[in-house]
């Protein structure tokens, strides 16, 4: 029988389907019976979906892209 602590430790493996069939069934059984863990899993999944929507924090300006393109084309022309 998995505990609530086990559920919080295995949430990523469950979400990424990195779990054997038996482990997955045990996990699902616990979540079905425990509304706190159901809430935790729901929130954990929302957290992942939200992270996927966050944009990387290194914006590149048009001028820095132009500069980099020129630099790379010069390297490419060198023997």
């Amino acid at each position: 029988m998995l505990t609530c602590k086990d559920i919080t430790q295995k949430a990523t493996d469950y979400n990424d389907k990195h779990m054997g069939l038996w482990q997955r069934m045990q996990f699902k059984m616990h979540v079905l019976m425990c509304h706190h863990c159901r809430r935790f899993m729901h929130q954990f999944e929302r957290t992942i979906e939200m992270t996927q929507q966050l944009k990387p924090s290194v914006p590149c300006s048009d001028s820095s892209i132009d500069e980099q393109v020129k630099r790379l084309m010069n390297i490419n022309h060198k023997p």
Partner: peptide, 24 residues
């Protein structure tokens, strides 16, 4: 947040915002 048996003692709270868009 867990008791010695590994079950929640301080349970996850209710989130006001339901969707990732609302949260963001």
């Amino acid at each position: 947040r867990f008791n010695p048996k590994g079950f929640w003692s301080n349970t996850p709270g209710h989130w006001q915002s339901a969707s990732p868009e609302q949260l963001l």
